[in-house]
């Protein structure tokens, strides 16, 4: 699913510290189809940057990065947008839901930007309700995100990420804002989704329980992959 070779990424700094700040210094790793991969590392190690590259939010890097057979660096803005819309799903630590929309409208948000054939509003809402049921928040249909608990918000964000049946789910600290019970439930949900739909999971995390549950752990230290292996193996 993912093939990364020699990925380098720097940020340009302005002001007194003007210059280049290298964040990724040649990252190599692979993630197979249907695998559950955890990306771990200290703050500032480049995990979120790697996630942005995988998600096609940033294509200013060097090296080779292929996701689902697509060389992301060669895609135009429209192609990257279509990739984000149909091939991947994002789940963020801060949920990133739109508070002024209902829960169903949040879940169906990707449908509004679909380029290959528009869906009717009815079809969009039906799919959204189905996904809310899948992630266990069917009782929140019609509610606003602001009325949901942290765990429920994250389930809603996962439902949105699944809207177009993505091949790859990219999650940035998905349990970072949750209590341990909610976090455990979310991890269980990820595993269930992976088992049921075969979606590939790539999760950036500090959470050792997630790392332990992963099929593959990719540890990034100072911009390079320090360790890549099975979750329980890394824990050990």
């Amino acid at each position: 699913m993912i093939r990364a070779r020699g990925i380098r990424k720097s940020y340009r700094l302005a002001g007194a510290r003007a210059g280049e700040l290298p964040v990724l210094r040649g990252v190599d790793f692979d993630v197979e189809d249907g695998e559950f991969a955890a990306v771990i590392g200290r703050s500032g190690s480049g995990k979120s940057t790697l996630l942005a590259l995988l998600g096609g939010l940033d294509s200013d890097y060097s090296g080779e990065l292929k996701v689902a057979g697509k060389d992301l660096r060669t895609l135009s803005d429209a192609e990257l947008s279509a990739y984000r819309n149909a091939t991947i799903g994002f789940v963020f630590q801060a949920f990133h839901l739109l508070d002024h929309l209902s829960c169903e409208d949040n879940v169906a948000l990707p449908a509004l930007f679909r380029v290959d054939g528009k869906e009717s509003k009815e079809a969009r809402l039906t799919r959204a309700r189905e996904l809310m049921d899948t992630v266990g928040i069917a009782d929140k249909i019609g509610a606003r995100p602001g009325t949901l608990s942290g765990g429920q918000k994250q389930r809603l964000a996962i439902a949105r990420a699944l809207y177009h049946r993505p091949k790859l789910l990219i999650c940035d600290e998905p349990t970072g804002n949750l209590d341990s019970a909610s976090a455990a439930a979310i991890i269980a949900l990820f595993r269930r989704l992976r088992d049921e739909s075969g979606v590939t999971l790539t999760i950036v995390t500090h959470d050792p329980t997630i790392a332990a549950a992963a099929d593959r752990v990719i540890e990034i230290r100072d911009g390079v992959v320090e360790l890549a292996g099975g979750g329980e193996e890394v824990q050990a």
């Binding site: 998600g55 947008s81 984000r84 819309n85 994002f90 739109l98 948000l109 930007f113 949105r160």
Partner: peptide
């Protein structure tokens, strides 16, 4: 968020 779920710059 809209960009993350597939909105193009033109959208």
């Amino acid at each position: 968020i809209m960009r993350a779920v597939g909105a193009r710059r033109s959208d």
